[in-house]
Amino acid sequence: MAKSLISKTEFGIYCAAGDFYIDPHRPVPRAVITHGHADHARAGHGAVLATGETLDIMRIRYGETFAGATQKLTDPIRLGGVDLRLVPAGHVLGSAQVVIEKGGRREVVSGDYSRVANPACAPFEPVPCDLFVTEATFALPVFRHPDPLNEINRLLASVRRFPERAHIVGAYALGKAQRVIMLLRQAGYSEPVYIHGALQALCDYHLSQGIALGDLRPATIETAQARALHGAIIIAPPSAFGSAWVQRFADPVIAFASGWMQIRAHARRRGVELPLVISDHVDWPDVTRTIRQVDPQELWITHGREEALMRWAVLEGRHARPLHLLGYDEEPE
Results as ranks from 00 to 15, higher is better:
Thr70Trp: 02
Ala201Val: 12
Ile22Gln: 07
Leu213Ser: 01
Val98Arg: 05
Phe138Cys: 00
Val272Lys: 01
Arg105Ala: 12
Thr70His: 00
Val98Phe: 08
Leu325Asp: 05
Tyr62Val: 03
Val98Glu: 08
Gly104Ile: 03
Asp295Leu: 10
Tyr328Phe: 11
Val133Arg: 04
Tyr113Leu: 13
Ile57Glu: 08
Gly231Gln: 00
Leu183Gly: 09
Val272Ser: 00
Ile13Ser: 01
His25Met: 09
Thr34His: 08
Ala240Phe: 06
Glu330Ile: 08
Arg154Asn: 08
Thr51Leu: 10
Glu298Lys: 14
Thr288Ser: 04
Glu191Tyr: 05
Gly304Leu: 08
His319Ser: 14
Gly103Lys: 06
Ala96Pro: 04
Val282Pro: 03
His324Pro: 05
Ser95Tyr: 02
Pro285Glu: 09
Asp329Leu: 10
Arg115His: 10
Gln97Leu: 11
Asp215Gln: 15
His324Met: 13
Leu276Gly: 05
Gly80Ala: 04
Gln200Trp: 13
Gly242Met: 05
Ala157Tyr: 02
Cys203Ser: 10
Pro296His: 05
Glu107Leu: 06
Met58Pro: 03
Val169Arg: 04
Gly327Met: 01
Leu184Ala: 07
Gln97Thr: 07
Gly80Cys: 02
Leu155Arg: 13
Met261Asn: 05
Arg321Thr: 02
Tyr62Ala: 00
Arg105Thr: 14
Thr74Val: 10
Tyr328Lys: 15
Gly271Ser: 04
Ala122Val: 06
Ile234Phe: 01
Arg305Glu: 12
Trp300Met: 13
Ala47Met: 05
Ser7Trp: 01
Ile13Asn: 01
Cys15Pro: 04
Arg160Pro: 05
Trp260Leu: 15
Met58Arg: 08
Gly210Pro: 11
Arg154Leu: 14
Ser243Met: 04
Ala187Glu: 01
Ala219Ser: 08
Thr288Gln: 00
His319Gly: 10
Glu125Ser: 11
Leu5Ile: 12
Asp204Leu: 09
Gly104Ser: 02
Val277Phe: 02
Gln247Leu: 14
Gly12Thr: 03
Ala212Gly: 06
Leu276Asp: 06
Ile254Gln: 02
Glu330Arg: 14
Arg165Glu: 10
Tyr21Trp: 15
Gly175Leu: 02
Tyr14Trp: 12
Tyr21Val: 11
Met1Arg: 12
Lys8Val: 14
Gly271Pro: 01
Val287Trp: 06
Gln225Met: 13
Ile235Lys: 05
Ala212Asn: 12
Asp130Glu: 15
Glu164Ser: 11
Pro119Ile: 11
Ala320Asp: 03
Arg321Asp: 00
Thr54Ser: 07
Leu5Pro: 11
Ser110Thr: 13
Tyr194Asp: 05
Ala157Thr: 04
Val82Gly: 01
Gln209Lys: 15
Thr288Leu: 02
Pro192Arg: 02
Leu5Ala: 10
Ile221Asn: 10
Gly46Tyr: 07
Val28Lys: 12
Cys121Leu: 09
Leu5Lys: 07
Ser190Leu: 13
Leu156Lys: 09
Arg217Ala: 11
Arg305Gly: 01
